[in-house]
Every structure is written in structure tokens, then in C-alpha cells.
Design a protein around this nucleic acid. Sequence first.
DNA 1: ACCTGAACACCGTTCAAGT
DNA 2: ACCTGAACACCGTTCAAGT
Lengths: 173, 173
Amino acid sequence: MRRLSRELGRSAMAPYWYVSDKQELLDLVARKLLSEVTLPEPDSGPWEERLRSVLYGIDAELHDHPGIAGILLERMRSTDRRLMNGIIEILLSAGFEGPNVFLAYAMIHTYLFGRYQVMEMDNPDATDLEDTLAGLVPHLAGLRGRDFFAYGVDTIIEGLRAQLASLKRSRRR
Amino acid sequence: MRRLSRELGRSAMAPYWYVSDKQELLDLVARKLLSEVTLPEPDSGPWEERLRSVLYGIDAELHDHPGIAGILLERMRSTDRRLMNGIIEILLSAGFEGPNVFLAYAMIHTYLFGRYQVMEMDNPDATDLEDTLAGLVPHLAGLRGRDFFAYGVDTIIEGLRAQLASLKRSRRR
DNA sequence: ACCTGAACACCGTTCAAGT
DNA sequence: ACCTGAACACCGTTCAAGT
């Protein structure tokens, strides 16, 4: 707060006229970013594509503001449920049901949450990787943050597809 | 640091005789916890089970100390690479190769990271879920933290299995 | 070898006051 | 309506000093 006021050329207490505390300010920022993510139309494609689209949308917002990821994702599941609801609708349309809807959603949410703690891991200090790994290091050079995220999302989608298949199998009995 | 000293009945500066700063103290705690996780023997079972076993091991350590998750996972990929190497060996034994080893590892690491930011989400305030969701809420009651983690790990494993299958397909060409 | 006390630079925030 | 200044309770940490 003090740094913000300093950068705006005001006294330390100036922000407190607009906002009641630091938390409220961060909430407003998170709210703004969340509102910029669009949900795909229900009939705009297969669930996999719609899911990927929301996740990439959230990723894009977080990309330039990794600092508020925590607040943002916390809001997503408490006060600002628009995106959470949207994702759950996608999962329902995919065929998830009952507890599985929440399990699947939580899994996705958790991955997103991790993404913005790690971020810096994208370029993992290839220096002094031991034994078996040393030979693999060259492969690391070409990988970028987006590659890691894309691979993660793909893997999650494949995983969910498998869960869905076994759900349908057990339903048939 | 001040609170630690207070609880130990020492002056605020007492810890600084043992440790050069707060970061170093947290590192020592993280190191201790990481060292308590055992890696399964390479021939102790299929890769899926060995992977699950390490992840559950890490989860168990983090469970009672969610606060140091950030430091712990950061160490895992920087100074304390024992577990990271172990997981990567498991992935290699599963058939991953080249960049895919790192992509798969990063995906897992990211999920773990998210797990301990979210934690509290495990019981998501079923109050005022809107429209389509209201009907699903009863299913939430029975779900516990462990269920969410187990489902996440299962989904990741299924996802990785699918990635592996397509890797092998492309290798055959 | 182990610890203390005073001090510094930094926070978020309360409260009374200024224009 | 919009902002300031002084003050408080809290940090992590430096430095010189005590036993």
C-alpha cells in the first residue's frame, strides 16, 4: 500500500479513501481480471475444446499478473463463481455427474493454482542435473512456459476422458 | 522469527545464532520433510504404483505442514533433487523420453504445488451455489481432502498413460 | 559458545485533522 | 469529497555488547 501511494505521488493513507483495506484492493483487481475471461458458447464445440478455451483464457490473464494468482483463484471458488460454474457446466455436458463433477473441477482448479506458483520453474536451471538426467538436458532448452501449460492441459483432458469412460462403463451395468 | 523466539522464551535475535536468516531456517525444515519421503525400489511394481507411492509420500509430509509447501517444492527442483530425480526415473522406466520426461514431470510438480495452496477448497462452501449446481451439492458432503487428492493423482496417471500411448504410436512410424 | 538490547527500515492500518 | 501526518503494532535484520 505504501509503495502504491508512493508511485501515485500521494501520502501513505490516500488509497484508504477508496478502499477499506489491502485485501479489498486485491479483490477488485482479481475481479477485473476474471471478468475479462470469456466462457465459450455451450454449442461452440466439443467439451475438450471448450474446456481448453476457458483454461487458456484464465492462463492469459494470470500470465501478466502472476502475483495475484492466489487471490484470483480463491475468488473463483468463493465470491466470483462465474468461471467455476462455466467449467462445471462444461463437465456436466461432457457426461460427468454427481461427486465426479466436483472431483474433476477441483483437479483442474488445483492445477491452475499450481501453475502460477511454479512459473519460474519453466526454465529449470539445467546446471548440475545428476547421472541419468544429464543426457536429457538438451531437450529442455527448446521448452517454453506455454509448452508446459499446454502439455499439462492436454494431460488433464486425457485423464478426464479416461475417468469419463470408466464412469460410463460403470453406469451401463 | 520474533514469534518463534517468543515461543522458545528467548530474545528476538536468538535464532540468528543458529541460522543466518529466515529463509535458511525454512530451508532446513523443508529439507527435513523431504528426507522423510522414501522412493520405492525400481522393481517394486508398475510405474503407476511407484509414482502414486512417491506422490502420496510427499502429500503426507505436506499434510501437517501446508505452510512450507512453497519452499519445499522449490527446493525439490533446485537444491534437493532427490525426489525429482526419483520421479523422473519412474517416468523414464514408464517409457517417457526426451522433452516429454520434463513435460510430464513439470505437470506433476505443478499439481502438487497447487494442492497446498488450495487445501481449504476441499470443503467448498456449499452455500449459495447457483442454478444447475444446487442439485449437485449433496454429493459434496461426503468428499474429503484425501478423495480430492486421490482423484487428482488418478486423473494425472490416466492422462500420462494416454500421452505415453501416443508417444509409442508415433515412435512406431 | 550462546544470547541480549537497542536500533533500523519496512509493513498495514487507526484516528484525528486539514482543505 | 479527497487527502495528509502522526502514531501504533508488527516484521526481519544489523550491530555492538554481555556472560
